[in-house]
Design a protein around this nucleic acid. Sequence first.
DNA 1: TACACTCGTCTCTTGTAAGAGACAAAATCT
DNA 2: AGATTTTGTCTCTTACAAGAGACGAGTGTA
Lengths: 262, 262
Amino acid sequence: MQDGNASAVSAGEKISGSREKGLNRVLEILEFLHTTQRAIGIGDLAKGVNAPRSTTYTLVRSLVDAGLLEMESDGNRVYFGKKLYLYGMDYVRGNDLLRRGRQEVDNLSRETGETSELCMLQSGRYTIVHASPGTRPFRISSATGLQIPLPWTASGRLLLAGLERTEIEGMVSDDDLVLPDGRKLRLDDFVADIGKAEVTGYCVTSGLVDAYTKCLAAPVFSAPGKVEATMCLVVPIDTSEERTGELIGLLRDRAARLSIAA
Amino acid sequence: MQDGNASAVSAGEKISGSREKGLNRVLEILEFLHTTQRAIGIGDLAKGVNAPRSTTYTLVRSLVDAGLLEMESDGNRVYFGKKLYLYGMDYVRGNDLLRRGRQEVDNLSRETGETSELCMLQSGRYTIVHASPGTRPFRISSATGLQIPLPWTASGRLLLAGLERTEIEGMVSDDDLVLPDGRKLRLDDFVADIGKAEVTGYCVTSGLVDAYTKCLAAPVFSAPGKVEATMCLVVPIDTSEERTGELIGLLRDRAARLSIAA
DNA sequence: TACACTCGTCTCTTGTAAGAGACAAAATCT
DNA sequence: AGATTTTGTCTCTTACAAGAGACGAGTGTA
């Protein structure tokens, strides 16, 4: 059953090397475009995923023909195509949690004026699946699809609830424990946080991703004990105790509502 | 550049036959899931795209590991995965026209109460890229991602504006000319319709897809003369001349607004 | 006008992935 | 309980795709 199978052992990378399977090349291409977030020339693409140029041309042509990628009007650079958008919408349609979660997040940020996000694990990485900006003058950064080390976030602590310590270790690299400001988190503390978050049913982190915000998160369950996603609010770090409490209450309420129809 | 290259020759299908490239198999799998619109067992999937079972298992595993597909909780059936959703959102972000088009369509259907759609060509096929349902008691069918023969729609007539007759023939099969009620359209008439739509700057079709609706469409240009998309409204066939005229005016206005910042 | 790039296409070779098929275990039917 | 189908995994062969590299055309820069 899909357990820690050989290939899933994270990085791997196998020293680049020889004959690579076409499909893998394609997966790398897609992932690369996801990180660049913009159209890119085929030559650069080949460099970026370090694949041979000839191969890259062939694969890109297939993908463009299939509509997964689209050629920019300049006839050289490529980026994601309509087909991927359509498949993505299919995913949304087939996924109640995501569809309703997006809705709740949008509501929440409109009602509170704060930045709100829906987060999930995506192949072992913390991922912001949907974000709604809030109305504060200074924009709190956060974009859909962004991937962040689990230990930097409140949501990360909730998403790992119920996992064995060894499993957690497997999902968190040493680099992940180093915060943006250079401080290093101890794994023991992180594991302890996870346990605490599980029993309290929410999690707050202050000044982890940056010094000026704190992050409030509540779990969304797909089954008793199984955390499928989190909803969170990103607020200024000097938000009062009182308001923070209110927001957490609201957040937990909405997250619970989402949990119902798993 | 990219002109009618060998592979693009539509159907092809090559009588199924022998060794198929892995990537192609994957593309077929994705397309198959797009048509079924729901999770499906791996065995059935193999049948559906008629690929060997062993191959299908291998490919599906790759795709699941990569997050393009997700395994249903029953551990057998698969459907689209979060990665595809994220890539799809990347596409939206990188595509002004789509982003603003979705917005306009939502506005339009809210303001008029009618079903509204944004349509584009997707590898030679007419595709409903975004749809917003409208408030009428009877739901007019139309789903995002739906693909319909070009001659059945008003939008189809606009999207082919400016193409040579031979190009049009290449994009329309004989089957496409047969309407849902069995009537057969003459290709000449269709080509004539396209020319007419181009000069009038909008298009109305009555009772083509079904007997109870008419379809109003207006073109969205990405460059002078180049129709990139259409916006359309689907209304009851007995809508008065007067209201139809109003709606067309509104539609053309909004479509023109979309055309500005190509 | 030479020089140093990158781009897109082609050809040829060989390493390897697609596929056939066999298998045990699980699920489903009778 | 036996019969029948389906599921997931494995092995082995060979057809063929990935890759190396050469080529001409295009672009910039010294």
